[in-house]
């Protein structure tokens, strides 16, 4: 079985700071990481590899520096890595991104048929959760999103059985390969690479594919191929009124003053709270 995992290198958004006055992003020195959600996808692929000796290829579309992220995947145990990189790919929205990734996956498939594609649930920078569905739609693969568990997978019968996080419950879906699985977070934990893995990652060649390697229509990639554009960036608006500072010499006095003031300002709150509590009591009594 051949499994492709799409990963993305993203800025560690926990470390991004916005200048309070100018609202500009201070990117300097912000480290990049593998999109945390993608690690769940990679680990799932590696577990399948451990069980079935599948081959795992990681792919990313990104700048040349994304090489680092791919190497980490190699250290964890991925067999091959492909960096899809070209100046014309930059500035892509999800439509253009999934176009390029789908083209790359087709190229990969032509070399060695792909049975399963994994993506993360979403990225922490784009946050869209659209690239996975986009890839599946373009390739005509089955789409299985928000997968929390792969119950069964059989390369010979081309069958896959998964649990999918749906609204209000878990769907158990039976589908066929080839499929795109977007992996839910918290489903597994990425392994700690061993030393031979680190050596392999440091030495192995990361393939680079540009526009010619994957044969794309230049009108559909990058900024040009992206229907959505960012029109404006702004910071959170401060509320017009500043918070009312509750006075009180002791915690008890402050608490009393707050409750009085709160219910004086919003009389309906007290009613609502009482009613709600009664309802809770009634329910409690029933059970």
């Amino acid at each position: 079985m051949h499994i492709a995992v799409c990963i993305k290198q993203v800025p560690d958004s926990a470390q991004i700071r916005v200048h309070p006055v100018t609202n500009t992003i201070m990117r300097q020195g912000v480290p990049t990481i593998i999109n945390p959600y993608d690690l769940f996808a990679l680990e799932e692929a590696l577990r399948i590899k451990d069980r079935t000796a599948a081959k795992v290829t990681v792919l990313t579309m990104g700048p040349p520096q994304a090489d680092d992220a791919l190497r980490k995947c190699l250290a964890f145990g991925a067999d091959e890595a492909v960096l899809i990189t070209d100046k014309v790919f930059s500035g892509a929205d999800t439509l253009a991104t999934s176009y390029v990734l789908a083209a790359a996956l087709k190229t990969l498939d032509a070399r060695e048929p792909v049975d399963l594609v994994f993506t993360g649930k979403q990225t922490i920078d784009g946050d869209t959760a659209q690239v996975g569905p986009g890839i599946a739609t373009r390739l005509g693969y089955q789409l299985l999103t928000y997968v929390s568990k792969i119950r069964e997978l059989d390369a010979d019968s081309r069958r896959i059985l998964v649990e999918r996080r749906a609204e209000g419950g878990v769907q158990v879906l039976e589908s066929a390969l080839p499929a795109v699985v977007t992996m839910l977070e918290g489903t597994n934990e990425i392994r700690f690479a061993d030393m031979p893995g680190m050596f392999r990652a440091a030495r192995q060649e990361v393939e680079r594919w540009n526009r010619d390697a994957i044969g794309v229509d230049l009108a559909k990639v990058g900024l040009k191929g992206s229907p959505t554009v960012v029109a404006q960036v702004f910071g959170p608006k401060p509320k017009a009124v500043k918070a009312f500072r509750v006075a009180g010499d002791t915690p008890a006095a402050m608490a009393e003053a707050f409750v009085d003031r709160l219910f004086a300002d919003y009389p309906h709150l007290e009613e609502a709270m009482l009613e709600h509590l009664e309802q809770v009591d009634r329910q409690g009594a029933k059970e």
Partner: peptide, 9 residues
């Protein structure tokens, strides 16, 4: 010796 499995060099 490194902290990783099979970590002696």
């Amino acid at each position: 010796r490194t902290e990783r499995a099979q970590g002696d060099i």
